[in-house]
């Protein structure tokens, strides 16, 4: 029983990371109806940038927020340069651009920061809490993830910029007619996604260590989480991310063993898409033909 609780709690802690990456995926999906295959590599690159700032002697949180800001800028730049011209292209071209982006960013990470596995510092105290069930870093990173989620919710719900972004995603034509700059809203969405990815990267790097392929598996779980919760629902994606974290941990401990954890993500993806393609909280979209 104690082992079970332990597994669930550490599942929630890793689920928090998946939840943030899922949220980043959903941000981009809502705005552009594209699934960003490069999200994981973007987050890894952001984490490297943060590490560079830390190594330059900055305090952790200063480096963290500077890293988030730089990632935001990179996200906006990618949208303006690469994704914008692909706005009306067919899906194969869009997928191709995302795969190309994945390859380029992955190689750049290796090129600039080298392929050796690096340690990444955690800002949280290294001690067991709550009677040994959870480590300081797990509690801290879950807290940061929840903080990000609340901040994103408040931003979309209670600021006029958030309202404009929702309008641009929901109905671009009408939004443009009432004066929302739709193009920039999409770019902002990309920036936010990159920033959220940066937070997720910094939270996961102390656990799995930093190397250019750090996010490959995490991205897959995040996909599974986003689909489980509903790819067009931010709240659903977050819940889905946490759920996938718990399922992964329990399955790894009791069901299939750690060697087949990634296969479990595949099973979740396939079963969600075939049984309930809109996810738990997603809307069912009908389109005219």
């Amino acid at each position: 029983m104690e082992g079970l609780i332990h597994q669930i709690i550490s599942g929630i802690a890793t689920g928090g990371i998946y939840a943030s990456v899922s949220l980043a995926l959903v941000m981009i999906y809502q705005a552009t109806h594209h699934i960003n295959f490069a999200q994981g590599e973007m987050a890894t690159f952001s984490t490297y940038i943060t590490l560079t700032f830390i190594n330059m002697g900055m305090p952790y949180w200063a480096a963290f927020f500077l890293g988030v800001a730089v990632s935001f800028g990179i996200g906006v730049a990618i949208e303006r340069i690469l994704i914008r011209p692909m706005g009306n292209a067919p899906i194969l071209s869009a997928v191709g651009v995302f795969v190309g982006l994945l390859l380029v960013i992955n190689s750049l990470s290796g090129w600039f920061f080298d392929y050796t596995i690096k340690q990444f510092p955690s800002p949280f105290p290294d001690q067991a809490l709550l009677g040994g069930y959870i480590s300081g870093h797990q509690l801290g990173s879950t807290g940061v993830t929840l903080g990000v989620l609340v901040a994103v919710y408040l931003f979309f719900r209670h600021t006029s910029l958030g309202l404009a972004m929702r309008a641009a995603a929901l109905n671009p034509v009408s939004a443009r007619l009432v004066g929302v700059r739709v193009g920039w809203m999409l770019a902002l969405g990309w920036g936010l996604a990159a920033a959220i990815g940066s937070v997720a990267g910094c939270m996961v790097a102390p656990v799995v260590f930093l190397d250019p392929n750090m996010m490959a598996g995490i991205l897959l779980y995040a996909f599974a989480g986003a689909l489980l919760g509903g790819i067009d629902s931010p709240l659903g994606a977050v819940l889905g991310g946490f759920a996938v974290g718990v399922i992964e941990n329990l399955g790894g401990a009791y069901l299939v063993g750690t060697e087949l954890k990634l296969t479990m993500a595949l099973v979740i993806i396939v079963s969600v898409l075939t049984v309930r393609p809109s996810g738990l909280l997603g809307r069912t979209v009908q389109s005219r033909v």
Partner: peptide
Amino acid sequence: GAVYGVILI
């Protein structure tokens, strides 16, 4: 990887 990616895009 970089060459692949750049050429692909």
